[in-house]
Simulated scan of single mutants.
Amino acid sequence: MAPLTGDFSYGEWNAVYNALSFGIAAMGSATVFFWLQLGNVSKNYRTALTITGIVTWIATYHYFRIFNSWVEAFEVNEVGGAYAVKVSGTPFNDAYRYVDWLLTVPLLLIELILVMKLPAGETAALSTKLGVASAVMVALGYPGEIQENLAVRWFWWALAMIPFAYVVFSLLVGLGAATAKQPESVAGLVSAARYLTAVSWLTYPFVYIIKNVGLAGPTATMYEQIGYSVADVMAKAVFGVLIWAIANEKSRLEGEGKLLR
């Protein structure tokens, strides 16, 4: 957790403030929606939808912590008709993001596998392999995130990309056959969830290297915080809506006797 450096403008500070606030609102409202919908889906999909709500609830908590830490790290005062921002000396704790990812990233993959309702053995094997790989990915990324040395940052980034590539390949290719076995009205939603996860996840390694390609100080911090916030909302809240849509459609088919329970 490196100290914040450079002179932040009010615009840069406010952009991060609003991005974090957006994260709280998106994750919090998504959690309420998912849990309110539990009674509207069949019991076969309630575990997946419960996990979906747990993911966004964990994210809501951590976004509150990041937001409060950001506010406490600065002093904002009116000076000559404008707002001036200066570092307060209180550390900005961005490690909450990695704690959040370590908890939620494996669950994101597990909820997708559960809502697909694959055979029990296949569900357990996929959940274990993808869950472990995603946790390793996050664990490998953190040591580089807190380093200023570019060589060290690139080293840990490269290591983290190994399990990252495995998970993304599994989403785009490995789950293709299982998706094809889904009902026609559901297969498109499952594919959308897979591709959304892959695309939103591809945002993270690029945000990670912002500080590796010459950007530094307040500008780099602003882009990093906004980038991670947008990616999180897509990967958790928006992805969760697709999980709900899949569970809702499969529940409808079950109710009409068009899908085996």
Score class of each variant (00 low, 15 high):
Tyr208Met: 01
Thr123Ala: 09
Thr104Lys: 05
Gly121Cys: 11
Asn40Ala: 15
Arg97Pro: 15
Tyr98Glu: 03
Leu20Ser: 10
Ser21Met: 15
Tyr98Asn: 05
Leu36Ala: 10
Leu260Lys: 15
Trp101Gly: 13
Phe74Arg: 02
Val115Ile: 00
Asn149Gln: 05
Ser69Glu: 07
Val79Ser: 08
Asn77His: 09
Ala216Glu: 12
Ala48Val: 00
Lys181Ser: 06
Asn18Ile: 09
Leu172Glu: 06
Glu122Phe: 07
Tyr228Ile: 01
Ala158Gln: 00
Glu78Gln: 14
Trp201Asp: 11
Thr5Leu: 05
Ala160Ser: 14
Gly6Tyr: 01
Ala231Asp: 11
Ile209Asp: 13
Leu118Ser: 09
Gly80Gln: 00
Pro163Glu: 03
Phe67Val: 14
Glu12Arg: 06
Tyr83Val: 08
Trp201Leu: 11
Val238Ile: 04
Val207Gly: 04
Thr31Leu: 00
Ala82Met: 12
Val213Trp: 04
Leu109His: 10
Tyr63Asn: 13
Ala139Cys: 13
Ser200Ala: 13
Asp232Pro: 13
Lys181Val: 04
Ile226Pro: 07
Gly188Thr: 04
Ser229Cys: 11
Ala124Ser: 13
Thr123Ser: 14
Glu12Lys: 04
Lys117Leu: 01
Thr52Ala: 05
Tyr208His: 08
Leu196Gly: 06
Ala192Gln: 07
Val136Asn: 07
Phe22Val: 14
Val190Cys: 02
Leu112Ala: 07
Pro163Phe: 00
Gln182Met: 03
Tyr204Gly: 08
Ile54Asp: 02
Ile146Glu: 02
Tyr166Pro: 01
Gly255Gln: 05
Val168Gly: 08
Gly240Pro: 03
Trp101Asn: 13
Leu159Met: 03
Val115His: 00
Ile246Thr: 02
Ile58Gln: 00
Ala178His: 13
Thr221His: 08
Glu254Gln: 12
Val132Cys: 09
Val79Pro: 01
Thr123Val: 09
Ala15Ile: 05
Glu111Asn: 11
Ser134Trp: 06
Tyr228Met: 09
Leu114Arg: 00
Thr179Tyr: 11
Leu112Asn: 08
Tyr223Ser: 04
Gly11Ser: 11
Ala120Tyr: 10
Lys117His: 12
Pro91Asn: 11
Ser88His: 11
Val99Ala: 11
Pro91Gln: 08
Asp7Phe: 05
Met1Gln: 10
Met161Phe: 13
Thr221Trp: 04
Asn68Ile: 14
Gln37Tyr: 13
Glu249Val: 07
Gly81Phe: 07
Val71Tyr: 05
Ala15Thr: 14
Tyr63Cys: 10
Gly6Arg: 06
Leu175Pro: 02
Glu72Ile: 09
Thr47Val: 14
Val55Leu: 06
Asp94Lys: 13
Asn77Ile: 06
Pro205Asn: 02
Leu130Ser: 05
Leu189Cys: 04
Val55Thr: 05
Lys129Trp: 14
Leu172His: 10
Val99Pro: 04
Trp70Met: 04
Ala247Val: 00
Val55Phe: 00
Ala158Arg: 01
Thr60Phe: 08
Asn93Asp: 15
Arg252Pro: 09
